[in-house]
């Protein structure tokens, strides 16, 4: 721990807790939510957390911003490299979010819902239809490839039932 005394230690601890807190909350949000839009929001939070951690890795206690001219030249300055990395990371995050929102828009237009479970079923049905085959577990493609008994159309069943009575009575 640097010579700055105990309280600077608590500053860094607070910051680390903030960074990891954001990261974890973002992760929880992404995994547990059932609505795609909320997952994108959680992604925003997770990225903010990661960026905070990255800047923290360059922070030096008692050092100032790496801008010359605003303070005396020989004052210790914070490490500029992580800040550059974060600049890039933020812009990447925005790019990915914009793309995510636009794809969500198209999904909503086609399926009308953004619920993860419903979309998962839609995905499977669409892939099977696109490949030109019956989806797994349906009548045409039983899961275990065990052929199902042919369906008895309702009309015939009634007719056979009717003939049984007549047959039985005659």
């Amino acid at each position: 721990m640097s010579a700055m005394g105990p309280d600077s230690l608590s500053f860094v601890v607070v910051m680390y807790v903030g960074a990891f807190g954001l990261l974890v909350i973002g992760a929880i949000g992404m995994v547990m939510s059932n609505h795609l839009f909320r997952m994108v929001l959680a992604l925003v939070i997770a990225e903010a957390g990661a960026n905070l951690l990255l800047v923290l890795s360059g922070w030096r206690d008692g050092a100032l911003a790496p801008i010359l001219g605003t303070h005396a030249a020989d004052v210790p300055m914070v490490d500029p490299v992580p800040q550059v990395l974060v600049l890039t990371a933020i812009v990447i995050g925005v790019g990915v979010q914009a793309l995510a929102v636009s794809v969500l828009l198209k999904i909503h237009r086609i399926y009308g819902t953004l619920d993860v479970r419903a979309l998962r079923r839609h995905l499977e049905l669409d892939i099977c239809r696109d490949a030109g085959m019956a989806p797994e577990g349906s009548r045409e493609a039983p899961a275990g490839e065990r052929p199902l008994p042919p369906p008895i159309p309702v009309a015939d069943a009634l007719r056979t039932a009717a003939t049984d009575q007549t047959g039985a009575t005659s």
Partner: peptide
């Protein structure tokens, strides 16, 4: 490490 990162590349750049 808390608060004193090994300023290898950062220091040289500064």
């Amino acid at each position: 490490g808390f608060g004193e990162p090994p300023m290898r590349v950062g220091g040289a750049i500064l």
